[in-house]
Design a protein around this nucleic acid. Structure first.
Lengths: 218, 218
DNA sequence: ACCGTGTCGATTGTCGACAATCGGCCATTA
DNA sequence: TAATGGCCGATTGTCGACAATCGACACGGT
């Protein structure tokens, strides 16, 4: 009687989807890696049907590729696809930034500061998976400040896809100091409600990210 | 032995997904309407499993809502969600426009002209479903001219979601003349490779679309 | 030694059955 | 008459089984 089998609310499909999504985004399942229904069925102690359904959702979310009669594979993202995806994410991020400084509340700032502290702790602990998760959440929250929640949702989805590309370079440590400094600049500009400084800080951070993506070439 | 049962390549899931997607986007299945697995299973002469899997994809694509133990319903989009979605689609459209006039080829123009002619025929025939389909394709092609194919893909997905909202006003005819005139202006600017005129034509068309969305209020 | 063909095993795709869930309807009580 | 509770039927969620598919490996022929 596994943990999954005990939890009957929400549905197995939802739980499996979330579990697999986490395994993919955390790097536990790597790009190109097969996802074996039978093995998962045994591991999770459920039948294959809810696993298949969860994989269909993952497929549509762009996180896996289902090859007919061959199986499910964690998706591989090409350099070009990564650039295109990043470009859209960046566009959404900058567009949200235009309204962020007028929308931001003290609660927002508190939440972002908490996140930034977590990211710094992750960097100290060299906990890369947690670092990226909290980093992603930080950026999604920034987009949410633009006041368009659909935009934050789309940004999240794009970012998830980008995680697949980025994890090819997980052996290479991020430039922690540079990123943390960028986060602090972003937060300072937000606290001052200084729109131009905020947009500039985001752009500078983004420029750094683009360089890193380029250096992950095929 | 139904048409679906004969076609074994691609998979049933893919075929059912596409079939349901078309039924939803064409208005054959309306927002809020239940999608009954058993009935579909009988209609399509397949078992429920591939239908369920297709519905999971539709769920992730934002076209249906799956309520546990209750069933699958074509998604209902609120006015606010529609606005937010439209805002992102518009942003992608304008961003693509910035590069469209330098990227566009004669083949592109020929394809777009063909589409525009189809749209005009649809308007003459009062074939609303086809009108919107071709109209959507026209706009996706415009975004594709920006050179970022992921952007076109995201735009398509957003536009599909917007279709759910827009179909609530299907009883109200579009302003054909105004739209067709706008399409012609867009095409002319593209043919001249006049970037400013092109962006202005898109903005004007978009302004008209925003007004129409507002008038579909809850 | 290399190439082509056939077979087998692992896995996937779909099927139909069973159990669980929920809403609607009916009966009873206040 | 209205409200509440219980039951039943329709539908969904998951299960396990069967058939189909594909790739790898082995064998035979050139």
């Amino acid at each position: 009687m596994s943990e999954l089998a005990l939890r009957r609310n929400p549905s197995l499909v939802t739980m499996i989807f979330e579990r697999l999504e986490t395994m993919i985004l955390s790097g536990q399942l790597q790009s190109g890696e097969p996802i074996n229904e039978r093995a998962l069925s045994q591991q999770f102690e459920v039948s294959r049907a809810p696993i298949r359904e969860a994989c269909r959702r993952l497929e549509q979310a762009g996180l896996v590729t289902i090859i007919e009669n061959r199986g499910v594979f964690v998706r591989e993202i090409s350099k070009q696809a990564a650039h295109e995806t990043y470009e859209i994410a960046h566009l959404l991020s900058i567009e949200a930034a235009k309204k962020a400084t007028e929308n931001v509340t003290d609660d927002d700032l508190a939440r972002l500061r908490t996140l930034a502290l977590r990211i710094e702790a992750d960097a100290s602990d060299n906990d890369l998976a947690s670092y990226y998760t909290n980093n992603d959440n930080f950026h999604v929250e920034l987009v949410r400040l633009g006041g368009n929640s659909k935009s934050a949702e789309v940004y999240r989805a794009l970012n998830n896809e980008l995680t697949l590309y980025r994890q090819r370079g997980l052996r290479r440590l991020p430039d922690f100091e540079r990123s943390l400094a960028a986060h602090r600049r972003i937060l300072e500009a937000l606290e001052k409600r200084d729109r131009d400084a905020y947009v500039a800080a985001l752009e500078a951070h983004s420029s750094n990210m683009t360089d890193r993506l380029l250096n992950l070439g095929v």
